[in-house]
Amino acid sequence: MTPVEFLAWVRGPMFQIAVAIFALGVAIRIVEIFVLGRKQDLSEPRRDGVVPGIKTIFGRSIPDTGTFKRSPLNVVAGYIFHIGLFTTILFFVPHIELFHSVLGLQWPGLPTPFIDAVTVVTIFAMVVILINRLRNPVLKFLSTFEDYLCWLVTLLPLLTGYLAFHRMLFPYQTMLGIHILSVEILLIVFPFTKLMHFFTVFLARWYNGSAFGRRGVQS
């Protein structure tokens, strides 16, 4: 397979396969949560749970001070990683073109050198996160193969994207192909792993926030 054939394959059939698995898997997992449902709570609510539920969806992004004090590294690296990842995904112009072509939506991009710098910082944060996972007793205890797999499949698009952008390691077509392939791997792995939290985090926060909220506590 020549680099051009490889690139055509990852942009063509492989992309379709990855998106199909991703869409199918994610839809299955979200719908089955909804179908499982929540039994009506018969207790008299102190107040309606809708507003607190929505507040928790957003508010939970801000860590409480106690958590921050006890595991600052986790919080800071986690923050940098998430913000960095979404910045590179959403604001690199070639990526915006991808969203535009698939979803029909587009928005302004950020200067390429900025994205480049963010990528480096994000990769660095991910390395810190891995070291933390390997060294922190709680994280080490909790971590399974899936956690390391998710780390890897998330890192690869960042790393290959960086290498492709800088024309490193392989000819551009090959590197771009590898980059796109790494994203496809991420998409394929997504519905079967904790990466699902990208979607279910909103459900979880909602359920938590509305349950606490109806009891009168903003969780």
Partner: peptide
Amino acid sequence: DGPIASYLSSCVH
């Protein structure tokens, strides 16, 4: 139930 399913789906360890 749904909440538990969403919680267990969301945990990132």
